[in-house]
């Protein structure tokens, strides 16, 4: 996994509550057996005026001129500003894969759905929870100022505004550690392999039916 330490980037809006993962990456693109290549289909139904298909060249598709990510001022954005309950619905990890492939490194919202939130950390994408009024303020400032950029310092757990004002955010110690160092958490868990085996042996004795093979 790629590390996340500090990032400065252009901010773009996804200004609606309850953005679901079907909206982030529609189901037809889930047929891929790869982890990459989802960026051109991020928010496909909002971004384009036609229906998208897997494997299609998106460069000639008609863009929705009313969708902010298509505005010239947001080109190259890498920080997504969003509203409540971002990423609800399906567990598809294709959602963070699409956001990452598009070029986003961080998402700021008042709240996230649990599975999506968790999936982001596995892919070097940092979801940041800030108070709803703080997020509302960021939206206002972003709309008011073209080229609005935020700096995110994971080590210090701060979002830093263009005027230098720093906003603190919370992040789990374990997730922070993994992100800062780009660690593979499977490797970390396997360091506890002996504990897993001990548990397994004890459990097999207590509840052997849990270990019966199917078929």
């Amino acid at each position: 996994m790629k590390a996340f330490t500090q990032h400065k980037g252009l901010v773009a809006p996804m200004d609606r509550a309850n953005v679901d993962t079907d909206l982030i990456i529609p189901k037809q693109f889930l047929k891929s057996i790869k982890r990459t290549g989802f960026g051109p289909n991020l928010f496909d139904e909002l971004r384009y005026l036609d229906e998208g298909f897997p494997g299609q060249d998106c460069s000639n598709r008609p863009l929705n001129p009313d969708f902010p990510l298509n505005f010239p001022r947001y080109q190259g954005a890498s920080v997504l500003l969003a509203r409540k309950n971002f990423g609800c619905g399906s567990s598809r990890e294709h959602a963070p894969w699409a956001l990452d492939d598009f070029g986003f490194r961080a998402i700021i919202a008042p709240s996230f759905a649990d599975i999506f939130f968790n999936n982001c950390f596995k892919n070097g994408l940092l979801p940041i929870v800030l108070d709803e009024d703080v997020v509302a303020q960021l939206f206002e400032e972003m709309y008011a100022q073209e080229g609005y950029e935020l700096t995110i310092d994971l080590e210090k757990q701060q979002v830093i505004k263009p005027n230098g004002e720093a906003i603190a955010f919370e992040v789990d110690a374990f997730r922070k550690h993994c992100l800062l160092n780009g660690l593979d958490d499977i490797g970390l868990t396997l360091e506890d392999a002996d504990d897993i085996r001990t548990y397994e042996a004890k459990r097999r004795e207590q509840a052997p039916w849990l270990f019966d093979a199917v078929k």
């Binding site: 982890r35 567990s91 598809r92 990890e93 963070p96 599975i115 968790n118 999936n119 596995k122 892919n123 374990f174 958490d185 499977i186 868990t189 396997l190 392999a193 897993i196 397994e200």
Partner: peptide, 17 residues
């Protein structure tokens, strides 16, 4: 439900963090 990275994690370790 879990994401695909966790699917891989459970496959390899039988555990979730």
């Amino acid at each position: 439900g879990i994401g695909t990275s966790e699917v891989e994690h459970v496959m390899a370790t039988q555990c979730l963090i």
